[in-house]
Amino acid sequence: MKKAVICLAEGFEDVEAVMPIDLLRRAGVSVTVAGVTGWEIVSSRGLRLVADALLADLVPGDADALILPGGMPGASNLAASSDVTAWIKACIAQDKIVAAICASPAVVLGKAGVLKGKRFTCYPGNEKDVTDGIFVTEPVVIDGNIVTSRGVGTADAFALELIRLLAGKDMRDKVAKATLIE
């Protein structure tokens, strides 16, 4: 069974966190909700989620994918975490999936220095913070093991691409059909 870790910090964007958690679990992927700022994390819209684990207690890179939702100040809180940076670096070094949506591609991955020469997308306006990546406006962009997406309106496409990468196209299609996404 493939494993994914999704990092939640205070101020995360609700849909960008819950959509990947839900759809990946429907696809049979083991998803660990990792609290970066504590066990109970409050979203930008006031949704309270309880983490399965604290990111600080997990071994960096011990998953097939790392997922970073956006939202503000969620993305800034992720970027400020040395644990998140350690996970990004470990996953990149091990050629595992690093996925970020909304502000997080620019704010978190850009700060971690992993977008150099890479195609990426993010929430409009955040791309100005990345000077060494190649910004494109596609809903979901995959460059090597880095997956980026634009925001709430692309969260379903983002989650489905993660399913395709982790569980295969047939499972992606099965989940999309069962949830009426396509």
Results as ranks from 00 to 15, higher is better:
168 G>I: 12
14 D>R: 01
104 S>C: 10
118 K>A: 12
136 V>E: 09
89 K>H: 08
129 D>I: 06
139 P>A: 14
113 G>L: 14
17 A>P: 12
31 V>A: 03
120 F>T: 02
56 A>K: 06
167 A>G: 06
115 L>N: 06
127 E>C: 04
41 I>H: 03
165 L>W: 05
17 A>S: 13
157 A>K: 14
95 D>Y: 00
94 Q>D: 09
22 D>K: 01
68 L>A: 04
181 I>R: 15
93 A>S: 05
115 L>S: 02
89 K>P: 01
24 L>W: 00
135 F>K: 01
26 R>V: 07
31 V>C: 08
149 S>F: 04
22 D>A: 03
106 A>K: 11
182 E>T: 15
35 G>T: 08
178 A>P: 00
148 T>R: 07
68 L>W: 03
33 V>H: 01
155 A>Q: 09
161 E>Y: 00
78 L>F: 04
24 L>P: 12
155 A>V: 13
21 I>L: 11
117 G>S: 09
168 G>W: 12
132 D>L: 05
111 K>Q: 15
163 I>G: 04
179 T>G: 00
165 L>H: 08
146 I>M: 07
166 L>C: 13
179 T>R: 10
148 T>Y: 03
154 T>W: 03
132 D>E: 15
3 K>A: 10
178 A>G: 00
82 S>P: 02
47 L>R: 04
129 D>R: 07
161 E>I: 10
89 K>L: 13
92 I>W: 05
66 L>D: 01
27 A>Q: 05
153 G>M: 08
164 R>C: 08
24 L>Y: 01
7 C>V: 15
133 G>S: 06
53 A>K: 04
110 G>V: 14
18 V>C: 11
181 I>S: 14
176 A>M: 14
109 L>M: 12
125 G>V: 07
104 S>H: 10
39 W>N: 15
67 I>N: 02
31 V>N: 05
165 L>T: 12
91 C>A: 13
72 M>H: 02
72 M>G: 01
81 S>P: 03
2 K>N: 08
54 L>I: 04
55 L>M: 04
157 A>D: 13
30 S>Y: 03
145 N>D: 09
76 S>L: 10
17 A>H: 04
30 S>C: 00
39 W>S: 13
84 V>F: 07
96 K>E: 05
87 W>P: 01
19 M>A: 11
45 R>I: 04
126 N>I: 12
44 S>C: 11
157 A>E: 08
129 D>Q: 11
172 R>C: 14
78 L>Q: 01
21 I>P: 00
139 P>V: 14
145 N>M: 12
16 E>A: 09
52 D>H: 06
78 L>E: 09
43 S>Q: 09
58 L>P: 01
9 A>Q: 09
149 S>W: 00
141 V>K: 05
66 L>R: 03
81 S>Q: 06
24 L>F: 03
149 S>G: 05
1 M>D: 04
86 A>G: 03
158 F>Y: 11
82 S>A: 15
85 T>E: 15
123 Y>A: 05
10 E>R: 11
158 F>E: 04
109 L>H: 05
75 A>M: 08
59 V>L: 11
69 P>D: 03
55 L>C: 06
34 A>R: 00
99 A>M: 10
70 G>D: 02
59 V>A: 14
161 E>C: 12
64 D>A: 06
48 R>S: 12
64 D>T: 09
